[in-house]
Measured scan of single mutants.
Amino acid sequence: QAPETKIVDKSRVACDGGEGALGHPRVWLQIPEDTGWVECPYCDCKYVLKGSKADAL
């Protein structure tokens, strides 16, 4: 199944896999201003900063 994409309001987000005990260790991710998105290294969930150029795609 394809990784999930989430639109977020802040450039710093936490990801834990979203499945409680079945998820992964919580990691904090920083969305770079130049790209407007970041992917979780564990679950490949893509976080897109709302209003960024990546959000316009």
Rank of each mutant, 00 (worst) to 15 (best):
3 P>S: 13
42 Y>F: 12
13 V>T: 01
6 K>H: 15
44 D>H: 15
32 P>W: 05
57 L>T: 13
13 V>Q: 02
19 E>T: 09
37 W>V: 06
23 G>V: 09
16 D>Q: 09
55 D>Q: 01
7 I>V: 11
45 C>E: 00
4 E>N: 15
50 K>Y: 02
21 A>T: 10
28 W>H: 00
12 R>A: 08
55 D>S: 01
56 A>Y: 13
3 P>Q: 13
25 P>I: 12
40 C>I: 08
43 C>K: 00
28 W>V: 01
37 W>Q: 03
20 G>S: 06
56 A>M: 13
34 D>K: 06
40 C>T: 08
39 E>G: 10
26 R>L: 10
5 T>R: 05
10 K>N: 11
56 A>C: 13
3 P>I: 11
12 R>T: 13
48 V>T: 01
15 C>V: 00
13 V>L: 07
33 E>C: 11
23 G>F: 08
11 S>D: 07
24 H>Q: 04
7 I>W: 05
32 P>C: 09
57 L>C: 14
57 L>R: 08
7 I>S: 03
46 K>C: 13
13 V>M: 02
2 A>T: 11
26 R>A: 01
29 L>I: 05
19 E>F: 09
47 Y>C: 14
39 E>C: 07
10 K>S: 13
54 A>L: 06
1 Q>M: 15
41 P>G: 02
2 A>H: 14
50 K>V: 10
26 R>T: 05
53 K>W: 09
56 A>Q: 13
53 K>D: 10
50 K>F: 03
7 I>M: 08
50 K>D: 10
8 V>D: 02
13 V>S: 01
2 A>C: 15
31 I>M: 02
4 E>S: 15
25 P>M: 07
43 C>V: 01
10 K>M: 09
25 P>Y: 07
1 Q>Y: 12
10 K>A: 09
15 C>L: 00
53 K>P: 12
37 W>Y: 12
52 S>M: 02
41 P>Q: 04
17 G>S: 03
40 C>R: 07
10 K>C: 11
48 V>L: 06
56 A>S: 11
8 V>E: 02
38 V>A: 04
19 E>V: 11
13 V>Y: 04
52 S>F: 03
21 A>P: 12
32 P>Y: 05
36 G>W: 03
55 D>W: 00
4 E>K: 15
35 T>K: 09
18 G>N: 07
1 Q>I: 12
7 I>K: 06
13 V>G: 02
40 C>K: 08
41 P>T: 04
47 Y>M: 03
22 L>V: 06
16 D>N: 05
22 L>W: 10
24 H>E: 02
51 G>Y: 07
14 A>L: 10
28 W>P: 00
43 C>D: 00
47 Y>F: 15
